[in-house]
Structure formats: structure tokens, C-alpha cells
């Protein structure tokens, strides 16, 4: 299977704390992959390093054969856990902004999705609810034709009906050479959509399996497997 991203010996320490500890990982093309792990296991640190927002203490990341930088940013659509958009901007202005910024951005896709979710084009971000703001950001990210989509907690604040719509959109829109890496705690909501899951604990990859492997070998869903493995 063709490799999209390769992570070798990746380490990030904050003083004495090792957030990511000698991690090795291969991300293939054409897969939807869940990044799962308890709070503080290193998911977001890993994601930030992949997006060039944090510098690794040791090890390497290679995406499409390049280290994180301008070239990889042009091919990765990243949804951070917190918003970076100006509160006073209108939805349509943000679409223009993304359209200027990213060559692979498709305005039609964005407007179609906004319309389907009944989001006003002229509303200012600050007038929208938390969940609607999240939807807008997710739409912006998913309207790009990227190689890798990295979504950090994409559906946490979104209502179940919109969640279904968003998942369907993800399924029918992403292209076969692209992969989606998403971190979430809402496993049961998304596990039917995933190919693979990566379990992370204490900054290391504990397991990298397919969803049906877990179901075949353990006779249980990824959600209940997670609850057992990480039982407190």
C-alpha cells in the first residue's frame, strides 16, 4: 500500500515531560484513520508536529516525502482544536479568505455544504453558536482537495443530525488518494466510517489495527475495546 506519511522516532518533550515518546507510524493513502487515546496521551502534540506548528525534539516526519513546511501545508487540510478565525468576519468573507489562501479550495463545495446546513453566508462568526462555528470550520477544511486531512476533535460540539451529514459528506467527497486522520473521543459515532484506528498511550503507538480486525479478534466494537484497554 502506498505510504502518505511516515513518522520515525518522533519525540517531543516539554521539560521533563515526554508528550510524544519515540513514536513510529505509517499513514497509508486512501484511508480514514481514527487517532484515539485518553486525554493527555499526545494526540494533539503529534498533530501539531505534523502541521509544523511544533518542532520535534527528535525524530522525523515525512509527508509526501517532505518534512513539514510550506509544501506540506499546501497539501494538508488541518482543523485545529481551537479556532483561529476572526470573530468579526462574515462566513462569505472567510470562504473568500480560504479561496485566496489555498489553491486546492473549492468555493462551490463550501457554499453547497453551508447551504445544506442552513448556515447564513452573511452572518458574522461571533453571532453563531459554538456548534455552528465548528461546522463552518469543518466545511472550510473539507472543501479543500488535499492529500491529507487532519481533524483534531472535529465533531465534538456538533448535533447528531449534522454529525451524520458531515460524516456522509466526508465519505462521498474525499478522493481515493487522500487520507483523513481524525482524533476524537466520540468513537461509537464514527467507527463505521473508519478503516483503521491508532491507539495512543503515553506518547506511543499502542496499537494500529483495522476496525474489522478488532471486531473479528475481540468480538466487540472499537468503542468498547477502547473502554476496556483504557479502563481507569
Amino acid at each position: 500500500m502506498e505510504t502518505l506519511a511516515e513518522i520515525k522516532g518522533l519525540t517531543k518533550s516539554y521539560g521533563k515531560t515526554l508528550a510524544v515518546n519515540n513514536m513510529n507510524l505509517i499513514i497509508p493513502r486512501g484511508k480514514i484513520i481514527g487517532l484515539l487515546g485518553p486525554n493527555g496521551s499526545g494526540k494533539t502534540t503529534l498533530i501539531k508536529m505534523m502541521n509544523g506548528l511544533l518542532t520535534p525534539t527528535a525524530g522525523s516526519i515525512s509527508i509526501n516525502g517532505c518534512a513539514p513546511g510550506i509544501t506540506t501545508k499546501a497539501r494538508i487540510a488541518y482543523l485545529p482544536e481551537r479556532t483561529y478565525l476572526q470573530d468579526g468576519m462574515r462566513v462569505c468573507d472567510i470562504v473568500d479568505y480560504f479561496s485566496d489562501f489555498y489553491k486546492d479550495f473549492n468555493r462551490n463545495t463550501a457554499f453547497t455544504m453551508l447551504q445544506s446546513l442552513n448556515i447564513s453566508f452573511t452572518a458574522r462568526l461571533k453571532t453563531l453558536s459554538k456548534g455552528t462555528k465548528e461546522k463552518v470550520q469543518l466545511i472550510l477544511v473539507m472543501s479543500r482537495n488535499a492529500d491529507l486531512y487532519i481533524l483534531d476533535e472535529p465533531i465534538a460540539g456538533v448535533d447528531p443530525a449534522a454529525r451524520d451529514y458531515i460524516l456522509k459528506t466526508i465519505i462521498s467527497n474525499y478522493n481515493e488518494n487522500a487520507s483523513i486522520l481524525l482524533s476524537t473521543h466520540l468513537i461509537s459515532d464514527i467507527e463505521n466510517v473508519l478503516d483503521e484506528v491508532i491507539f495512543i498511550r503515553d506518547g506511543q503507538v499502542m496499537a494500529h489495527l483495522t476496525v474489522d480486525q478488532i471486531r473479528e479478534e475481540y468480538g466487540r466494537s472499537v468503542d468498547s475495546y477502547f473502554r476496556e484497554v483504557f479502563a481507569c
Binding site: 456522509k168 465519505i171 463505521n192 466510517v193
Partner: peptide
């Protein structure tokens, strides 16, 4: 495959 995957809300590879 894709249409049916979207209808079922499952991964197209599955």
C-alpha cells in the same frame, strides 16, 4: 460503492 457507502454511513473501503 461510494453511493451505497454514503447511504449506509460506512467507510467506502468496507
Amino acid at each position: 460503492v461510494r453511493e451505497l457507502a454514503a447511504e449506509a454511513s460506512v467507510n467506502p473501503n468496507t
